[in-house]
Structures are given as C-alpha cells and as structure tokens.
Amino acid sequence: MPFVSIGGVTLHHRYRPAAGNARPIIFINSLGTDFRIWDEVVSALDGEMPTLVYDKRGHGLSDIGGINSIDDHVDDLCDLVDHFGLGKVVLCGLSVGGLIAQGFYARRPEGVEGLILSDTAHKIGTADSWNTRIATVESKGIQEIADGVLKMWFTPAFHTARSAELDGYWNMLTRQALAGYAGTCAAIRDADFTEAARRIAVPTLCIVGDQDGSTPPALVRSLADLVPGARFEVIRDAGHIPCVEQPELLTALIRDFVASLADGKQIHG
C-alpha cells in the first residue's frame, strides 16, 4: 500500500497517472470516510486523467496527527501536490473535502485549474451543532451517532436495497479514529469561506444529492451563488455521498467539467 511521510504526517494515498496532457484531479473525502468512497468514480476515469485519492489526516490509514483547523488538512494537501510535482490541479472535494479544496484555493489560487465542490458549502453547520457532536462522540463513541449520520449520507432507497453496503459504511464510519473525527469536526466548526468564495476566479462546479440531509441542496446552491460564474447541478436519487450512491451520474458531470476546462469554455450556472 502506498504511503508517504511529509511534514511529519504519514498519508495513505493512491496515485494513478495517465497519458496525455489532462490536469490531475485530486479527490478529497468526507468526514468519517476514507478514500475508498471514490473507488467507482476513479476506476471509471482511469486512463483518462491522472487521479490522486488520499486519506486525510485522522482518517483511514493516515496518521491521526494534531488537527486544530482546516489549515492542517490544507497543509497536507499542499504537501501531497508538491511531493508529486503536480503543478496545476483540479480539486474535487466532498463535504469537509470541499472546505479543504476551498482552503487550498485561497492559499494557492495559481495552482488550481478548476474546483468541483460536492455536497459542501462555504460554511457548514453551527458552533452549537458541532460542539454537541464532539461532546457526544467523545463521551459515547462514534457509534452513538452512526445511525443518524447514515440517514443523512444515503437515501431511504439505499437503506432498503443496499443493506450490506450500508453495514460496510457503518463499519467505515465507526472505525475512524476518535481523535481524528472529533478534531475534524472542530475544524469544520471553525471554517468559514464565505468571503473567500466570492474571490474564486476559476471554473467551479457545485454538486449536491437531491436528498442530502447534511448539506441540503439549498445550502450548496448558496455556495454556488457566492462563486462567480459557478455551475450548480443536482444529482437525483442521492444523499450526501453521490460518489457511492450515484457514481455514474457524478462521473459524467466530472468528465463534462474537465472537458470544458480543456476546451476553454466558460462555466455558468
């Protein structure tokens, strides 16, 4: 399994190069998951464009590390980009991954070709809601909130028809490191990219599942409205994690967006 230690943090990752001149696309996973949530999307894009997935700090097989803010996650992403010498990239971030993508752009706008912000926002939740979640998991464990979280992650149809997968994602969530989960909750709580979103000057695609219970369509739409010229798309029959529930639809949107970058088309919502 590929690991790299940079900046004192060991990160688990998978990089797939591709022939041609396509920009690399980096996928950044959501709170309580690891990079396997992108498997179907990345497999479908294999050979079309270079792809990089990684377990953000505190998740999956990466180091737990000290997580004090979104900047810690942004640091790791910057280090990975530098390690692979990727130059300009397309960032595809889901939920907190979208906050990390926005943070990376705010720090290195010259290093971003385009942004795909999936089921995320400029600001997610309230201080009270995140403090309550942190207190709950620290006192009772992640399993205490797992059933409720999965109701936001996936549609009722997924719960009914794909029960074995649902069990697997329950396992993924509850087996994350508590310190990494709680630390990232605090990072989300304190992150606010409202003003930064107004200054995004690269093509941006904002995507949301129509039944997302965590970052509902209206919230993601509010992010798209902040970003000049952003395109907004709703994926039908999907909750908070369309890359698991509707990977074909998400992959089609990604292909179209990346093709528009290569063609120099303007993206407008």
Score class of each variant (00 low, 15 high):
residue 89 V to W: 07
residue 56 K to H: 07
residue 35 F to T: 05
residue 47 G to L: 10
residue 70 I to K: 01
residue 104 F to A: 04
residue 80 L to D: 00
residue 96 V to E: 04
residue 63 D to E: 07
residue 82 D to H: 15
residue 94 L to T: 06
residue 74 V to L: 03
residue 42 V to K: 06
residue 45 L to H: 09
residue 63 D to S: 15
residue 83 H to P: 02
residue 71 D to W: 01
residue 48 E to S: 15
residue 102 Q to F: 13
residue 96 V to Q: 14
residue 59 H to K: 13
residue 33 T to P: 02
residue 46 D to E: 12
residue 64 I to V: 15
residue 101 A to P: 01
residue 88 K to D: 05
residue 45 L to A: 14
residue 72 D to N: 02
residue 105 Y to E: 13
residue 69 S to T: 00
residue 80 L to Y: 07
residue 35 F to A: 05
residue 37 I to R: 05
residue 84 F to I: 11
residue 66 G to V: 04
residue 42 V to S: 09
residue 45 L to I: 13
residue 60 G to E: 03
residue 72 D to P: 01
residue 103 G to S: 08
residue 68 N to V: 01
residue 85 G to F: 12
residue 38 W to H: 10
residue 78 C to V: 15
residue 60 G to W: 02
residue 63 D to N: 12
residue 73 H to G: 00
residue 89 V to N: 03
residue 37 I to F: 06
residue 84 F to A: 08
residue 62 S to K: 10
residue 45 L to Y: 09
residue 63 D to Q: 13
residue 77 L to N: 01
residue 99 L to Y: 05
residue 81 V to K: 09
residue 62 S to A: 12
residue 81 V to N: 04
residue 79 D to T: 15
residue 106 A to T: 15
residue 61 L to C: 08
residue 50 P to D: 10
residue 76 D to M: 05
residue 41 V to H: 09
residue 33 T to S: 11
residue 53 V to R: 02
residue 86 L to H: 04
residue 100 I to Y: 02
residue 95 S to W: 04
residue 101 A to F: 08
residue 31 L to I: 11
residue 78 C to T: 13
residue 38 W to M: 13
residue 61 L to M: 12
residue 33 T to C: 11
residue 86 L to D: 00
residue 67 I to H: 01
residue 47 G to R: 14
residue 60 G to K: 07
residue 88 K to Q: 14
residue 45 L to K: 11
residue 63 D to H: 08
residue 102 Q to V: 13
residue 98 G to Q: 09
residue 73 H to V: 02
residue 44 A to M: 14
residue 96 V to R: 11
residue 58 G to Y: 00
residue 51 T to S: 13
residue 53 V to W: 01
residue 73 H to L: 02
residue 65 G to H: 02
residue 102 Q to W: 11
residue 83 H to G: 02
residue 81 V to S: 05
residue 59 H to P: 00
residue 72 D to Y: 02
residue 42 V to G: 05
residue 36 R to G: 11
residue 79 D to F: 13
residue 87 G to I: 15
residue 41 V to Y: 08
residue 71 D to Q: 04
residue 38 W to A: 06
residue 70 I to M: 08
residue 52 L to G: 03
residue 90 V to A: 10
residue 87 G to E: 07
residue 87 G to H: 08
residue 72 D to R: 01
residue 97 G to T: 06
residue 51 T to N: 03
residue 76 D to S: 03
residue 53 V to F: 05
residue 56 K to M: 15
residue 83 H to W: 10
residue 35 F to D: 02
residue 71 D to S: 04
residue 65 G to C: 06
residue 50 P to Q: 11
residue 95 S to F: 10
residue 98 G to C: 14
residue 44 A to E: 10
residue 82 D to S: 13
residue 47 G to P: 03
residue 105 Y to S: 09
residue 66 G to A: 10
residue 48 E to C: 15
residue 38 W to D: 05
residue 74 V to Y: 01
residue 106 A to I: 14
residue 65 G to N: 04
residue 73 H to S: 00
residue 106 A to L: 14
residue 67 I to F: 00
residue 36 R to W: 08
residue 102 Q to P: 10
residue 93 G to N: 03
residue 87 G to R: 11
residue 81 V to Y: 08
residue 63 D to R: 14
residue 66 G to Q: 04
residue 35 F to C: 10
residue 54 Y to R: 06
residue 40 E to Y: 14
residue 74 V to F: 01
residue 76 D to R: 07
residue 37 I to M: 10
